[in-house]
């Protein structure tokens, strides 16, 4: 479908929804966006004391809630609350995800379904929910999908997980086309973190990755947050891209 290009710039996001914002990279993204003066709505299955603390420190700029990303009804209610408290959402960071650490042959069929539901179906549905509201209001905005180097490179024990991350990277490209410049849609694909979900790789595998990484260390959340912030806030023409943040480990 070829139509005249929409040449109006997409403004920086001012109210950003972050899924899975209670720990790890999600919490780091919430913290970083608050430091940048952005209003942030964050949900997670469990709201941690760290996230509660941020909410208490910035009562006028933060809205937090306990929502399971696979519960679309709860997500809808949360989005309405956010709009009432902080204003219309014009940015979303799809960060919530579950990890995997099991060989495909020995992963229960139900577990495969759960990984796909949490990491692929749920973010697509949440994105749909938010862009419908943005389009209805004539808003322009930004979408950042947190994916993984697993979407592009192979790692044992992460078959279903990799499928979801590669799926989100593919969705990023098609969504960027579909939204015709009214929204900038990109993925950020971190390499393995030393903590959190990268408990999915054993120490031997992590040592091997570090040895093969030119920068000599695993990725830290604070090395990823500036990239997410740039995609949400800066005037760039980056759209439909997957930006890998892994110290060139996968190159």
């Amino acid at each position: 479908m070829s139509e005249p290009a929409d040449t109006q710039l997409v403004p920086p996001s001012s109210v950003v929804l972050v899924s899975g914002g209670s720990r790890g990279l999600g919490l780091a993204i919430v913290t970083d966006l608050l430091d940048a003066g952005v209003r942030v709505a964050a949900f997670a299955r469990t709201v941690t004391p760290e996230l509660e603390k941020l909410a208490a420190e910035h009562p006028d700029r933060v809205h937090v809630g306990s929502v399971d990303v696979t519960d679309l009804r709860a997500a809808q209610i949360f989005v309405r609350e956010v709009e009432q408290r902080l204003g219309p959402i014009d940015g979303i960071v799809n960060n919530a995800a579950m990890g995997q650490d099991s060989l495909h042959a020995h992963t229960a069929a139900d577990d495969i379904a759960r990984i796909i539901e949490t990491n692929l179906t749920a973010p697509l549905q949440l994105t749909r929910l938010v862009i419908r509201r943005m389009l209805a209001k004539g808003l322009r905005g930004r979408i950042v999908n947190i994916t993984s180097i697993c979407g592009q490179r192979g790692f044992p024990g992460l078959v279903a997980y990799s499928a979801t991350k590669g799926g989100m990277d593919a969705a990023t490209r098609s969504l960027a086309r579909e939204l015709g410049g009214r929204m900038l849609v990109n993925s950020v694909a971190p390499g393995f973190f030393a903590s959190e979900m990268s408990a999915v790789l054993g120490p031997t595998q992590l040592d091997q990755i570090v040895r093969r990484t030119p920068t000599g260390h695993l990725t830290e959340p604070v090395e990823v947050t500036p990239v997410v912030r740039m995609l949400l806030r800066e005037h760039t023409n980056i759209n439909g891209q997957v930006i890998v943040v892994d110290g060139a480990a996968a190159i």
């Binding site: 650490d101 060989l103 042959a105 020995h106 992963t107 229960a108 577990d111 024990g157």
Partner: peptide
């Protein structure tokens, strides 16, 4: 993996497990 699947065949029960134990 092969051994675990042979045990499954004998018992008729799926044996699923995470990699850290392995």
């Amino acid at each position: 993996s092969e051994l675990a699947l042979r045990v499954e065949d004998e018992t008729g029960e799926e044996l699923n497990f995470d990699a850290p134990g392995l």
